[in-house]
């Protein structure tokens, strides 16, 4: 199986505080990897670094056979290949659902309006949102907003999808509909890296789970192994607190 994303000794610090510490990880094409770890362990920062929203201090980030962390590269064409979905949705409030979804395909990929809308409609239908196409984000429930945010990212046909605690801003009864979307994406063999506090979900869908602590990768294993027989003391402590 080919490697889609390869992190080599990635480090990142904010004004002297190390947030990502010598982090290495391979994600295979079609693989789904879950990042777990306490609040502040660096999950969001890692995802933002992979998406080049934050420059890294050291290390390499390989997407296929390019080191995208090379500072001289133009980040825009790389970002469009990597989708990032945020905890707080970050939909554009002044645009309708349809315009949220079609903005990037039109302005970045240069698609025509009709073509972009047809493609968007297909995606919205697939995730049960076709009747919301003309609505503004304010008029949607949190779960619907997050599903639109995922659709907006998918409309760019990313090769790699980064999901940052996409359910933690949602009321409990809305979590299910968003997780269903992730299940569907997993079934379509999308390569995904997902930061989450939903241990049960990680256990169900992940091919591999990574436990982070203070910016370091402490342990990585298939969920069956990591959740039942963690090798590291710190993993055991964390799991005993959250399970």
């Amino acid at each position: 199986m080919s490697v889609k994303l390869k992190l080599k000794s990635v480090s990142k610090s904010f004004s002297g505080t190390t947030v990502i510490d010598n982090f290495s990880l391979d994600v295979a094409t079609g693989e789904m990897v879950c990042l777990i770890g306490a609040s502040g362990s660096g999950k969001s920062t890692l995802l933002r670094c992979i998406n080049l929203l934050e420059p890294i201090d050291n290390g390499e980030i390989w997407l296929d056979d390019f080191d995208i962390a090379e500072p001289s590269l133009d980040p825009d064409p790389i970002r469009r290949r990597i989708g990032l979905v945020f905890q707080s949705f970050n939909l554009f409030p002044h645009l309708t659902v349809m315009d949220n979804v079609t903005l990037a395909p039109r302005k970045v990929l240069g698609k025509g309006k009709l073509q972009a809308q047809a493609q968007a409609m297909e995606l919205l239908e697939r995730f049960g949102l076709s009747d919301k196409a003309r609505a503004y984000p304010d008029h949607l429930s949190g779960g619907q907003q997050q599903r639109v945010a995922i659709v907006r990212t998918l409309a760019m046909q990313p090769e790699l999808l980064l999901l940052d605690e996409i359910t933690s801003a949602l009321d409990p009864e809305l979590v299910g509909e968003v997780l269903d979307v992730v299940r569907a994406l997993k079934a379509s063999r999308m390569t995904m890296l997902l930061a989450t506090h939903e241990m049960a979900f990680a256990r169900e869908v992940a091919d591999r789970v990574c436990f982070l602590d203070e910016g370091r990768l402490i342990e990585t294993a298939p969920p069956s192994a990591l959740f039942t027989a963690p090798q590291e003391q710190r993993t055991r402590e964390f799991l005993s607190r959250v399970l």
Partner: peptide, 28 residues
């Protein structure tokens, strides 16, 4: 800033982010 982060993560350039995402909201 999360609005421009969202726009940039979709691959929009800095100027397109300003034009289509930030400015319309700022003016409104």
């Amino acid at each position: 800033s999360s609005q421009s982060a969202a726009a940039r993560s979709l691959g929009l350039s800095e100027s397109d982010t300003m034009r289509y995402v930030v400015l319309p909201q700022a003016i409104r």
